[in-house]
Design a protein around this nucleic acid. Structure first.
Length: 290
DNA sequence: TATATTGTTACACC
DNA sequence: TGGTGTAACAATAT
């Protein structure tokens, strides 16, 4: 499921692959995935040149022509897959999920074709994702009302993190870390991983955190997100990059999806537990997380 | 067939 | 009015 590191990986790849290409055709097979869909959606895209691709939280922003931006949210199971004209997937020997070898497949809902006959496929098993074509100015303004600071930006200092926590001192840690208005881009996987890094249970009340724990949470947020980007994200579900390759961060997961397995902390003999908390599957080691 | 899945949002409530 | 907490929602696999 794409969170900040997975979306960042996709954005970087899109910049390499589709920036500068001109849109030749757009096929919308499942209309509900396009917000404000009308005849102008396709019309406004045709013949336009793709500009730079950026990210805000888990939202992908694709500049279209001079004045428009295409917003894309992958939600749980959205995939963007880029394919050259030949249609052959060249992942350099990496394994490709069977259903991605031959596209479009039954989960392909939107298809962009560029003038060089390359394609960008939007696949979505659950159909929870969406895209929306908006004016560039709207794209610049809107996200800043919806999202807190980017955790990897220079503005996300320890002081800033403390301020965010101070406003939510009565809430449980996990809830605060996952709320996009507080900090942008962290989802269920990386929340659990950050809490493990800091040696703190995700269920802790924010106001109970000691200064040292707060600092480790801040460090952990930055360290883990950076590391996950370096390894091109985590594929626990359907996530793949735009070439169909899975992310390489799975071996580095300490608690997420490791229920019943031995704690990876040195000298800790605990076993990873899984509970339902804040409505979500939550993983931690109760030996070394306090 | 019931259930789990998760990011987002609608909505009830104080 | 605004903050908060809960439930609903999307569709599918198992």
């Amino acid at each position: 499921m794409p969170e900040l590191p997975e979306v960042e990986t996709i954005v970087r790849d899109l910049n390499k692959k589709i920036k500068g290409k001109v849109i030749k055709s757009v096929q919308v097979r499942v209309p509900k995935l396009v917000k404000n869909l009308n005849t102008k959606f396709v019309q406004a895209l045709l013949g336009q040149k793709v500009g730079s691709v950026t990210r805000r939280a888990k939202l992908i922003k694709v500049k279209i022509g001079q004045q428009k931006t295409l917003l894309i949210h992958l939600k749980l199971t959205g995939q963007l897959i880029y394919r050259e004209k030949s249609g052959k997937l060249t992942a350099g020997g990496h394994p490709i999920p069977q259903d991605l070898k031959d596209l479009p497949n039954k989960f392909t809902h939107i298809i962009f074709t560029f003038t060089d006959e390359s394609h960008l496929f939007y696949n979505d098993l659950r159909k929870f994702g969406w895209m929306n074509l908006v004016s560039e100015s709207a794209a610049e303004k809107l996200p800043n009302q919806e999202f807190g600071p980017e955790p990897l930006s220079p503005e996300f200092t320890l002081e800033k993190f403390k301020q965010v926590l101070a406003k939510k001192s009565g809430q449980p840690l996990k809830k605060v870390l996952m709320e996009q208005k507080n900090i942008a881009g962290i989802g269920n996987i990386y929340t659990d991983e950050v809490c493990f890094y800091a040696g703190v249970k995700p269920t802790r009340q924010v106001k109970s955190l000691k200064p040292q724990e707060t600092e480790r949470l801040w460090q952990g947020t930055r360290h883990i997100l950076k590391s996950a980007i370096k390894h091109r994200g985590t594929s626990v579900d359907t996530y793949v990059d735009i070439s169909g390759r899975q992310g390489g961060y799975i071996p580095y997961l300490k608690v997420y999806d490791r229920v019943g397995q031995k704690c990876k902390r040195q000298n800790c003999h605990g076993v990873v537990k899984k509970i339902k908390f804040n409505g979500r599957g939550t993983h931690y080691c109760d030996q070394c997380q306090r």
